[in-house]
Amino acid sequence: MIKLPVLDYIQHMINNTLTPEMCTHMQYPTPISQMLGITITEIGPGTATLQIDTSKEKHSNQQGTIHGGLLSELADAAIGTAHSTFIGEGESFTSIDLKINFYRPVFDAVLTAKASPLQKGKTISHYMCEIFRSDGKRVAMSTSTVMTLTGDKARGR
């Protein structure tokens, strides 16, 4: 097996150049992203862009707009993917908080979430994620605090 850093693995995943012997210490694509149809479209050190093609039939709330929980999951997935590019073998991380503001409704649209660090620390990092509709309009913005875990705190995660 060829064990790659998360960033390199995801770059191969995006470029469709993964080979069967390539692996990383984290699980990509994640099961929740596979179930929801979220894909990673761009990756860089501490940054990630994810997309989902939403529809009222699959993702709406009682008013017929795309559910805010799905937007929250998309932001959380983008932030987690961005932060995972900094995580080495034997390390893990967890979200401390996630705050999201909704700006306009979404109906049927491809949503794009762009996450980047506001502040990268050794243990505590802060991220921002903006979510855009297909027409380029911002629909939501999220911030999150992420804690990197090492040693005993990372074991078994």
Score class of each variant (00 low, 15 high):
I2S: 06
K3G: 05
L4P: 03
L4M: 09
P5W: 01
P5R: 05
V6I: 14
L7V: 12
D8H: 06
D8F: 04
Y9D: 08
I10W: 02
I10L: 04
I10H: 04
Q11T: 12
M13S: 12
N15G: 15
N15R: 10
N16Q: 15
N16F: 05
T17P: 02
L18I: 10
T19Q: 14
M22E: 07
M26L: 14
Q27I: 15
P29E: 11
P31T: 14
I32E: 09
I32S: 14
Q34C: 14
Q34V: 15
Q34L: 15
Q34H: 09
M35P: 08
M35L: 15
M35H: 15
I38Q: 06
I38E: 05
I38F: 10
I40R: 02
I40S: 12
T41L: 06
T41M: 06
T41Y: 03
G44A: 14
P45C: 12
G46D: 11
G46K: 08
T47Y: 13
A48T: 13
A48I: 13
L50C: 13
L50D: 07
Q51K: 12
Q51S: 12
Q51W: 04
Q51I: 14
I52E: 10
I52G: 06
D53E: 15
S55D: 09
S55M: 09
S55C: 11
S55R: 06
E57Q: 15
K58V: 10
H59C: 13
H59P: 03
H59K: 10
H59A: 14
Q62K: 11
Q62C: 14
I66N: 07
H67F: 14
G68A: 11
G69E: 09
L70S: 09
L70F: 07
L71R: 06
S72H: 06
L74C: 10
D76Y: 05
A78V: 08
A78E: 03
T81Y: 08
T81M: 07
A82Q: 07
A82F: 08
H83I: 11
F86P: 00
I87D: 05
G88Y: 01
G88T: 13
E89V: 08
S92W: 06
S92A: 15
F93I: 11
S95V: 07
I96S: 05
L98Y: 05
K99C: 10
K99P: 00
K99V: 07
I100M: 12
R104T: 15
P105W: 05
V106Q: 06
D108E: 11
D108H: 06
V110S: 03
L111C: 04
L111W: 04
L111S: 03
A113P: 02
A115C: 04
Q119E: 09
T123E: 03
I124N: 00
S125D: 01
H126P: 00
M128G: 04
C129D: 02
C129H: 01
F132R: 02
F132S: 08
R133S: 09
K137Y: 00
K137G: 04
R138Q: 12
V139A: 14
A140K: 03
M141Q: 13
T143N: 03
T143W: 00
T143K: 01
S144L: 01
S144D: 02
S144C: 05
V146R: 01
V146L: 04
M147L: 10
T148E: 00
T150P: 04
G151W: 00
G151Y: 01
G151S: 05
D152L: 04
A154P: 08
R155T: 07
R155I: 06
R155N: 09
G156Y: 00
R157C: 03
R157Y: 02
